[in-house]
């Protein structure tokens, strides 16, 4: 059952709003030419950082980039390969180098 506008919140007249939150990183980048705007990524994100675009068919807005937990669920469920890219910030890109063949190791 639903009680419409009962006592305690009756004073709320203004609607909700959202303002972009500045963040030093861009965890998620969309490829607009591949994205079909299905919003699967937004529906699955457990941190709820993506908001469906106000324009139908366009990719979601990365509304709360700083709240990304970098789990990769958005990429895993995306039906169009390459439409969404998730990448850790620069500081978290671990370094790798060519292996040193055992024959060249000086003991």
């Amino acid at each position: 059952m639903t009680h419409e506008n009962d006592s305690c919140a009756a004073g709320l007249s203004a609607g909700y709003s959202y303002r972009p939150v500045p963040c030093s990183t861009r965890p998620i980048i969309y490829n607009q030419s591949l994205c079909i705007g299905c919003n699967r990524c937004a529906s699955v994100c457990q941190c709820d950082i993506l908001l469906p675009s106000p324009v139908k068919g366009e990719h979601p807005i990365v509304a709360y980039p700083g709240e990304c937990y970098y789990c990769g669920a958005c990429v895993m469920v995306c039906p169009r390969k390459g439409a969404i890219r998730l990448e850790h910030p620069l500081m978290n890109q671990a370094k790798y180098v060519p292996v040193i063949p055992e024959s060249e190791v000086l003991n």
């Binding site: 709003s17 959202y18 303002r19």
Partner: peptide, 19 residues
Amino acid sequence: MTEYLWPYPNEAGQTEETS
């Protein structure tokens, strides 16, 4: 700064009770 409308309905004040 730009403000956007919230994409979901405003149901603050509504109560759903279920069991």
